[in-house]
Amino acid sequence: MRSLRALAALVVAVLVALPAGPAAAHGGKIKLTVAGDGAGGVTVMAVYADGHRLDQLVRLTLTAEGEGGRTAGPVQIEPAGEGQGFYSSGPLLSPGDWRVTVSAPAPYQSTATAQVQARVAQSPSPVAIERPADRTDPAGVRWWPWLAGGLVVVVAAAALLWRRRRVDLGPGDQPAGLGG
């Protein structure tokens, strides 16, 4: 019975000494960098305090206070497609100046605040929209019709030569070099 208690104490001691997971491996803290997205949204970059990329999903919460007592949130922001540790709120803020706070839950316990100026999203002007590039060479000449035409000419010439050669040879004639 004594050895069983000693073994149980050893197991508990080993479990307590082991890191609690990926956060503990990096010191348990993350660094949040908050910025506006150029329109009405917020972007966040999250990295471990030691500078390594965040390698797992963290549930970040955003709250914002704007001019005139306006508020937004709390809202959970989603990972963005830019890569690990990037988060985006999407369109959330109306135009104006906002004080945005993003926080991470335990075990990370991190908070960051930034001033963000939200703007009306801009749509591209019709002048800025370009037609897709057509497949032309630098001189502006389409090459494939010329290639197709050249192939047609070569095939037609070969067919005419072959037919003429067959007509020039009589029924009993053999072309030179075929022995006989």
Results as ranks from 00 to 15, higher is better:
residue 91 P to S: 06
residue 152 V to P: 12
residue 158 A to L: 09
residue 62 L to C: 03
residue 56 Q to W: 00
residue 148 A to W: 15
residue 97 D to L: 08
residue 1 M to G: 15
residue 158 A to N: 08
residue 5 R to F: 14
residue 178 L to T: 12
residue 42 V to H: 00
residue 84 Q to N: 06
residue 87 Y to P: 00
residue 113 T to K: 09
residue 78 E to C: 03
residue 21 G to H: 10
residue 22 P to W: 02
residue 106 A to M: 10
residue 99 R to M: 01
residue 14 V to F: 08
residue 146 W to N: 12
residue 57 L to K: 06
residue 48 Y to I: 07
residue 32 L to P: 01
residue 161 L to G: 14
residue 162 W to N: 07
residue 41 G to L: 03
residue 128 A to Y: 11
residue 65 E to G: 00
residue 90 G to K: 01
residue 82 E to F: 05
residue 163 R to T: 14
residue 55 D to R: 00
residue 101 T to H: 11
residue 157 A to P: 00
residue 5 R to A: 15
residue 21 G to K: 08
residue 144 W to Y: 15
residue 116 V to E: 06
residue 157 A to W: 05
residue 174 Q to E: 14
residue 41 G to Q: 05
residue 5 R to Q: 13
residue 47 V to W: 03
residue 155 V to M: 12
residue 91 P to M: 05
residue 143 W to Q: 13
residue 130 E to Y: 11
residue 111 T to G: 04
residue 19 P to W: 08
residue 87 Y to M: 04
residue 90 G to E: 07
residue 47 V to K: 13
residue 138 P to I: 12
residue 12 V to H: 05
residue 3 S to M: 09
residue 178 L to P: 05
residue 86 F to E: 00
residue 86 F to S: 03
residue 66 G to R: 01
residue 16 V to S: 03
residue 113 T to F: 04
residue 6 A to V: 13
residue 33 T to G: 04
residue 84 Q to D: 05
residue 172 G to E: 10
residue 68 G to W: 01
residue 40 G to W: 08
residue 165 R to V: 12
residue 130 E to W: 12
residue 44 V to T: 09
residue 131 R to M: 15
residue 123 S to M: 14
residue 132 P to W: 10
residue 155 V to P: 00
residue 115 Q to E: 15
residue 83 G to Q: 00
residue 68 G to D: 04
residue 148 A to Y: 15
residue 33 T to K: 08
residue 37 D to Q: 02
residue 10 L to D: 11
residue 173 D to Y: 02
residue 11 V to E: 13
residue 180 G to A: 11
residue 60 L to C: 00
residue 14 V to K: 04
residue 33 T to F: 08
residue 148 A to M: 15
residue 147 L to D: 10
residue 172 G to D: 09
residue 92 L to R: 02
residue 168 D to K: 11
residue 12 V to P: 02
residue 2 R to N: 13
residue 31 K to V: 14
residue 25 A to M: 12
residue 65 E to I: 05
residue 100 V to I: 06
residue 107 P to H: 05
residue 112 A to C: 07
residue 90 G to S: 03
residue 81 G to L: 06
residue 102 V to A: 09
residue 115 Q to S: 13
residue 105 P to G: 07
residue 133 A to M: 04
residue 72 A to M: 05
residue 13 A to C: 06
residue 89 S to A: 07
residue 116 V to F: 04
residue 3 S to P: 04
residue 40 G to N: 07
residue 45 M to A: 15
residue 165 R to K: 10
residue 91 P to D: 10
residue 100 V to S: 09
residue 108 Y to W: 09
residue 103 S to P: 12
residue 34 V to N: 11
residue 30 I to E: 11
residue 46 A to I: 01
residue 44 V to Q: 08
residue 22 P to A: 10
residue 105 P to T: 08
residue 83 G to C: 01
residue 151 L to I: 11
residue 145 P to H: 11
residue 28 G to H: 02
residue 161 L to K: 06
residue 35 A to F: 07
residue 6 A to S: 15
residue 149 G to W: 15
